[in-house]
């Protein structure tokens, strides 16, 4: 089985449209195991019960940012090795640097083309 068949991805975004767009891009890449979640807290609860390989999360969400989620994931033994890609509207230095410190695997700025997201993912998990 190829990587894209095995890879389990969780998309975290509070906006249904952004979630849809990300899922659409992932499906276009051929990734089959996609789950979605609409806030950071739900995501961390879910991930500690059922880890995935890669989390793709929006930065700006009510109730907890994408980096807050990353922080929680890295602090929990079960979830600390999950790959994490941050999606942000604006490449803000402070955000990127904090992400870097927390062990963010990669980031991408909105809006993005599916190709760009694919490159972004491939730099983390290898060729799909």
């Amino acid at each position: 089985m190829s990587l894209k068949d095995q890879l389990h991805v969780l998309v975290v975004d509070d906006m249904a449209v952004s979630r849809g767009l990300i899922v659409q891009a992932l499906e276009w890449m051929g990734i089959r195991n996609i789950e979605v979640c609409n806030d950071a807290r739900e995501a961390s609860t879910r991930l500690s019960a059922r880890p995935v390989h890669l989390v793709i999360s929006d930065y700006n969400m009510p109730g907890g940012s994408g980096l807050d989620l990353l922080h929680t994931l890295r602090a929990n033994k079960v979830t600390q090795r999950i790959g994490f890609i941050l999606i942000t509207g604006k490449a803000d230095r402070a955000v990127i640097e904090r992400g870097q410190k927390l062990g963010m695997n990669n980031y991408i700025t909105k809006p993005f083309a599916p190709e760009a997201l694919k490159t972004c993912i491939e730099r983390v998990v290898g060729r799909l």
Binding site: L3, Q6, L7, P51, V52, H53, L54, K77, V78, T79, R81, I82, G83, R93, I96, E97, Q100, G103, M104, N105, N106, Y107, C120, R123, V124, V125, G126
Partner: peptide, 17 residues
């Protein structure tokens, strides 16, 4: 900004813990 993507260890795929 010197951000370098961090590659996931492929061996761990399928076994996060």
């Amino acid at each position: 900004l010197s951000f370098q993507p961090m590659t996931l260890d492929l061996d761990m795929i399928g076994a996060p813990d």
